[in-house]
Write a protein that binds this DNA or RNA. Structure first.
Length: 145
DNA sequence: ATTCTAACA
DNA sequence: TGTTAGTA
């Protein structure tokens, strides 16, 4: 397939795909005329993996160093490759903990704001405000572990 | 219409 | 990565 289709199938831009190839992360052939790139069908999975790693915060360099672990023959897979993967694994673990902590704080803020809104402006009756407060509580955001 | 390379307010 | 220019 050509670059346009690969982009469509992976939800990435054509520009990004050329960049991945430039970084040695993606393989491609050349059309007979050498005019344009031709990608193997497997490139779809490869690109999805690349984007997943990128979105997790891994750099092109890091991804390049661990790809030999993905490709069938891996002559350039070294001890350092494993060390790098372990480091990223650890980093993601810390990042997940930090994100969980942030989520907890947000939960508290939501809880506080909800109570404030419910008890605040309605010494007499309660209508819109109370409804809004209840809506927030049941919105799925208040998932206390 | 699609792809390519090169380059940057 | 986006975008633009000039081609093929």
């Amino acid at each position: 397939m050509r670059i346009g289709e690969l982009a469509r199938l992976t939800g990435s831009s054509v520009r990004s795909l050329r960049y991945y190839e430039e970084q040695g992360l993606l393989d491609s052939q050349r059309a007979d005329s050498g005019a344009h790139r031709v990608f193997h069908a497997d490139a779809v999975d490869r690109v999805r993996l690349l984007r997943q790693l990128y979105s997790a915060g891994l750099s092109s360099k890091v991804i390049a160093s661990i790809l030999p672990c993905v490709d069938t023959p891996s002559p350039e897979l070294t001890e350092e490759s494993i060390a790098i993967m372990q480091a990223e694994y650890a980093r993601l673990g810390e990042q997940m903990a930090a994100i969980a902590d942030t989520r907890d704080q947000l939960h508290h803020l939501i809880d506080h704001a909800t109570r404030h809104l419910a008890a605040d402006v309605d010494p007499a009756g309660r209508c819109a405000d109370t409804d809004r407060a209840r809506t927030h509580s049941d919105s799925g955001l208040a998932v206390t572990p």
